[in-house]
């Protein structure tokens, strides 16, 4: 079939009607400060991993918030948890808890030895 170039692929839009928003709600209940993010990008700018790879906490957090989980687990694995992002955040978001909990929510590898 000829691709005419104006067809919008399904994955190219964020369909908020079908997106699973409950996962974020659970994470936000654990890390209430996540809701305060105003998307200034300071976290991404100071990120240690960012020096080596296009890792973007702000963007991935937003995608997670909107239920777009595809590829995120792999992205979060890039984080070194060094905590610089937390120090520069003007809104006092606990970015480390945020990424930790997003990572845990996405990963079904049974990371932890604690019974859930």
């Amino acid at each position: 079939m000829t691709n005419w170039g104006f067809h919008i692929a399904k994955s190219r839009i964020i369909d908020m009607d079908t997106a699973d928003l409950g996962v974020y709600r659970k994470v936000a209940a654990k890390v209430p400060s996540a809701k305060l993010c105003l998307m200034c990008g300071a976290c991404t700018a100071s990120c240690t991993a960012r020096n080596h790879t296009p890792f973007n906490l702000r963007k991935n957090h937003l995608l997670f918030r909107h239920g777009q989980f595809k590829g995120l687990a792999k992205e979060f694995d890039k984080c070194m948890l060094c905590g610089k992002c937390r120090l520069v955040c003007p809104r006092g978001v606990n970015t480390r808890a945020l990424i930790y909990n997003m990572r845990m929510a996405l990963d079904n590898l049974n990371y932890t030895r604690i019974k859930k």
Binding site: N51, H52, D77, M80, L81, C82, G83, R96, Y111
Partner: peptide
Amino acid sequence: EEKGVCCGRPLRQQGFVQQAKDL
């Protein structure tokens, strides 16, 4: 100075031992 890598301890303290060893 420009392109450092974390020492690994923050990961290790959160229990990501394997990741820490990588660093």
